[in-house]
């Protein structure tokens, strides 16, 4: 942590993510729809793998019931 191009940007991101995760759970939305991972700009292959895996996970969950909101 803290090893970020934007100084403490990743620390802020983690805080924001955990807050959003709590809100999502309160609202009864599947927490598996959210994912946080640290990927450096030099890790192209790893980024592609994570994005592919997460896409598969979302496809498995199917469309959210919230499609119409907001």
């Amino acid at each position: 942590m803290g090893d970020c191009h934007y100084l403490d940007g990743n620390e802020k991101a983690e805080k924001m993510f955990s807050m959003a995760l709590e809100l999502v759970k309160l609202l009864g939305i599947e927490p598996e729809r959210m994912h946080l991972e640290w990927v450096s700009s030099a890790e192209g292959g790893r980024f592609a793998q994570i994005a592919t895996d997460f896409t598969k996970q979302i496809r498995r969950l199917g469309p959210s019931r919230l499609k119409k909101a907001a």
Binding site: L23, L26, L27, G28, I29, R65, L66, A69
Partner: peptide, 18 residues
């Protein structure tokens, strides 16, 4: 707009855990 979004989500058929 986070709070407005929460309100919008609550108009839907959701099962909250609050």
């Amino acid at each position: 707009g986070m709070l407005q979004t929460i309100m919008a989500i609550q108009t839907q058929n959701i099962h909250q855990d609050r």
